[in-house]
Computed example of a mutant assay.
Amino acid sequence: MQPTILLASRVSEPFHEHLKARFRVIEATAAGFDEAVAALPPELAGDIRIVVAFGSTRMPAAALARLTRLGLICCLGSGYDGIDLDHARERGIVVTNSPAANARSVADLAMGLLISSVRNLSSARAYLEAGRWQGNAGERMQPVRGLTGRKLGICGLGAIGLNVARRAAAFDMEIGYHGRKARPEVPYPYFDSIVQLASWADVLVVSMRADASTYHAIDTTVLQALGPQGFLINVSRGTTVDERALVHALKTGQIAGAGLDVYEHEPSIPSELFELPHVALTPHIGGSTLEAAQDQEACVLANIEAFTAGQPSPTPVPL
């Protein structure tokens, strides 16, 4: 008998059709995972063996407990911060992710946000739209410092962080990093704390995993260390940054600017951010490329096939 899959996040149409051709697929009919599971008839909930969803999808223990035969949770993307891992561990549920599938795409966006915020591209567009540019004879925007020679600090030198480092090197930036531990195989200097890294850096890129240990890791102390010429780029999860402290730092000039793809209370975004110069904003699209989606879906399929064959998962999350 084909295992039953609960598809709790959107996927590409080809992948959707592929899953339906091979497995029994139940699609979530409510926006929240809690609500979607609660809407399932008990007999259907009891049939579900596999859940496929983004790792940021909130899957609390109470909702997972209703899926009495659940054996596998496949996360689209590298994150798995929405899942109650303690519950999964207690029940022996295998949790998998796609650890490097979207790394290059997220790193690309990190550099785009960096260029946009440092070069103040939003203000440049507004300058054009206001009709203020009349060629060299007219009013000109003030020059700003470019990327060459800036010090780029990376918080979290995983797959995304390494790809950011490679791209930043092509811009002749100096690179340093902080992580859970030093990586002697990389040529970049390691800093023992985020505060030390921020004090050294001109730009701080946040690409760390979101969990209890990194909640508000970027706080007032870090932002003060980054300083009035510094920029913050966040492409990890919104919870890694104290958003209230960040807005205050931007409004008071404690830091120069920011590039944000993620927010603490998504999809809610503080309105003040739209009014500030040198702030680039995108709607959590770091991994939203065709290439990343294909790699993520291939990883999910490999984990499903291993599970149904009784084999170890290719990319298990440590529980």
Results as ranks from 00 to 15, higher is better:
78 S>Y: 10
78 S>P: 02
78 S>L: 12
79 G>P: 07
79 G>Y: 07
79 G>L: 08
80 Y>F: 15
80 Y>G: 00
81 D>R: 00
81 D>S: 05
81 D>F: 00
83 I>F: 11
84 D>T: 09
84 D>P: 08
84 D>I: 09
85 L>C: 08
86 D>Q: 12
87 H>R: 05
89 R>S: 11
89 R>G: 08
89 R>A: 14
90 E>I: 13
91 R>Y: 00
92 G>T: 02
92 G>S: 04
92 G>V: 05
92 G>C: 06
93 I>S: 04
93 I>D: 05
93 I>A: 05
93 I>H: 06
94 V>S: 14
94 V>I: 15
94 V>R: 15
94 V>C: 14
97 N>Y: 09
97 N>D: 09
98 S>A: 14
99 P>Y: 04
99 P>E: 03
99 P>S: 05
99 P>I: 04
100 A>I: 05
100 A>F: 09
101 A>L: 11
102 N>H: 11
103 A>L: 03
104 R>T: 13
104 R>S: 13
104 R>L: 14
104 R>P: 00
105 S>Q: 11
105 S>E: 11
105 S>R: 08
106 V>N: 02
107 A>T: 00
108 D>V: 12
108 D>W: 07
109 L>F: 07
109 L>H: 04
109 L>W: 02
110 A>M: 10
110 A>D: 07
110 A>P: 05
110 A>E: 07
111 M>R: 01
111 M>D: 01
111 M>L: 14
112 G>Y: 05
112 G>M: 07
112 G>T: 06
113 L>K: 00
113 L>Y: 03
114 L>W: 00
114 L>C: 11
115 I>T: 07
115 I>S: 07
115 I>L: 15
115 I>Q: 04
115 I>H: 06
116 S>I: 01
116 S>P: 01
117 S>Y: 08
117 S>D: 12
117 S>G: 11
117 S>C: 15
118 V>A: 06
118 V>E: 02
120 N>C: 06
120 N>L: 00
120 N>P: 03
121 L>W: 12
121 L>D: 12
123 S>M: 07
124 A>W: 03
125 R>T: 12
126 A>T: 12
126 A>D: 14
127 Y>M: 07
127 Y>W: 12
128 L>P: 01
128 L>D: 09
129 E>F: 08
129 E>Y: 09
130 A>V: 01
130 A>S: 10
131 G>V: 09
131 G>F: 08
133 W>K: 02
133 W>Y: 14
133 W>G: 03
134 Q>T: 09
134 Q>N: 12
135 G>L: 01
135 G>V: 01
135 G>I: 04
136 N>H: 15
137 A>K: 13
138 G>H: 03
138 G>L: 04
138 G>D: 05
138 G>M: 06
139 E>A: 14
140 R>H: 13
141 M>H: 10
142 Q>N: 13
142 Q>S: 15
142 Q>V: 14
142 Q>D: 13
144 V>D: 03
145 R>I: 12
146 G>P: 03
146 G>K: 06
146 G>H: 07
146 G>T: 10
147 L>E: 09
147 L>F: 11
149 G>W: 08
149 G>F: 06
150 R>A: 09
150 R>Q: 14
150 R>E: 09
151 K>R: 15
151 K>N: 12
152 L>C: 15
153 G>Q: 10
153 G>L: 10
153 G>F: 06
154 I>M: 01
154 I>H: 01
